[in-house]
């Protein structure tokens, strides 16, 4: 029998999406030249949340590792940036990848511990780890103990002379890191390891019978996302210039918001966290006056989406328009239209 099917990654409207993606990337890279100061700041913050959401989505949406403790690495990264710049005099930009390395090194023993917990208990276990980090840093008096510390002005000045230049640099770092993380997650998921991950998510038993080492694959994913989350954390606190245990290891800021972003945008998709972050900030800018009401609204929206549209806003758009900016699915196409 002749095989008329072709298997390929790329969707039909490949050229259109590629061009669109290039235009958006170029426009965002040039943002400091066309955005005002307040808007640039907001754009940078969106980039940081896109990064956190993309990484959390890699864990929960693809590796089945639902963590509510990623604030452990956000805070760790922030504190490492402060420690290395203040005590050792490392330039801030260099301290960011160092924070990533330390995040990975600490994630290894942590993984050995929390991987003993299954499913939902894993989630709370990661939270305990984050609490251990928070309470431990609160004990370090050199870093300000419970009340925290600030980056000296001289270190800030060393990054760039003018305030405008520093703000542009800050944005570019956030944009660059977000672009890198999205690209990394995309390529990782298309690699053989990523396919193994998807196989595990869809059917753990079948995957292990195919010879996939489930533990190793999840372990690697966990450590890498810890490293990248630490780098994002370093960048977040480089912009804030001030760190304290409660801010650094906040479950609300670095996990609750991130979970809402991913759930609303669409869990288990690359586009979801990006869409979700944009919606999240649009809501925040319009509903900010509501105060706590804003968070209640967000929680209700996330629950409704989880129940009614588990693939999120992106899932709805994708199903309706058959679009994909980051094609991950193998598509089997039948070249003969008449079956």
């Amino acid at each position: 029998m002749k095989n008329d099917n072709t298997v390929r990654f790329t969707p039909k409207n490949y050229v259109v999406t590629a061009v669109l993606l290039a235009i958006v990337t170029a426009a965002l890279a040039a943002a400091p030249y066309w955005l005002g100061r307040a808007d640039l700041r907001l754009a940078g913050e969106i980039m940081l949340y896109i990064s956190l959401a993309t990484l959390w989505n890699l864990l929960a949406g693809y590796a089945g590792l639902v963590s509510v403790g990623q604030q452990a690495y956000v805070g760790l990264g922030g504190y490492m940036l402060f420690a290395f710049t203040i005590f050792i005099g490392v330039p801030p930009i260099l301290a960011i990848p160092i924070a990533g390395v330390i995040g990975a090194l600490l994630a290894i023993p942590v993984a050995f511990l929390v991987f003993r917990l299954r499913g939902a208990y894993f989630a709370i276990g990661t939270w305990v780890i984050a609490e251990v980090f928070r309470l431990s840093f609160a004990q370090i008096s050199a870093l300000g103990g419970g009340s925290g510390t600030s980056i000296p002005a001289s270190i800030v000045k060393s990054m760039a002379e003018t305030r405008a230049a520093r703000e542009s640099l800050s944005y570019w770092l956030a944009f660059g890191l977000a672009a890198f993380i999205i690209l990394f997650v995309y390529l990782y998921l298309r690699s053989s390891k990523g396919l193994a991950l998807t196989a595990i998510r869809d059917n753990e038993l079948a995957a292990s019978s195919l010879g996939i080492d489930i533990w190793k694959t999840k372990f690697f994913t966990y450590v890498v996302s810890a490293a990248l989350t630490s780098m994002v954390g370093a960048l977040i606190f480089l912009q804030k210039l001030r760190i304290s245990p409660d801010a650094a290891f906040s479950v609300n800021d670095w996990t609750a918001f991130v979970i809402f972003i991913v759930v609303i945008g669409g869990i288990g998709t690359i586009e979801g966290p990006i869409i979700g972050a944009i919606i999240f900030f649009a809501l925040r800018e319009t509903l900010a006056d509501l105060g706590t009401g804003y968070l209640i609204t967000l929680g209700v929206v996330a629950i409704i989406i989880m129940l009614k549209a588990p693939n999120g806003i992106w899932g709805i758009l994708r199903d309706r328009f058959d679009i994909s900016f980051f094609p991950l699915l193998y598509r089997v196409e039948n070249q003969k239209q008449d079956r």
């Binding site: 929960a60 089945g64 639902v66 509510v68 499913g119 939902a120 989630a123 609300n252 609750a256 979970i259 809402f260 759930v263 869990i267 105060g291 706590t292 009401g293 968070l295 209640i296 967000l298 929680g299 209700v300 996330a302 629950i303 989880m306 129940l307 588990p310």
Partner: peptide, 30 residues
């Protein structure tokens, strides 16, 4: 609410009770 989330997938109950946690906390705050 919660009966609708139970199944083989652990994600929905986890995320929905997480959302519930945020809702309760902020309602109490209000």
């Amino acid at each position: 609410l919660l009966n609708k989330t139970l199944g083989t997938d652990i994600l929905p109950p986890l995320l929905i009770t997480f959302g519930l946690s945020v809702i309760i906390q902020n309602t109490l705050l209000q």
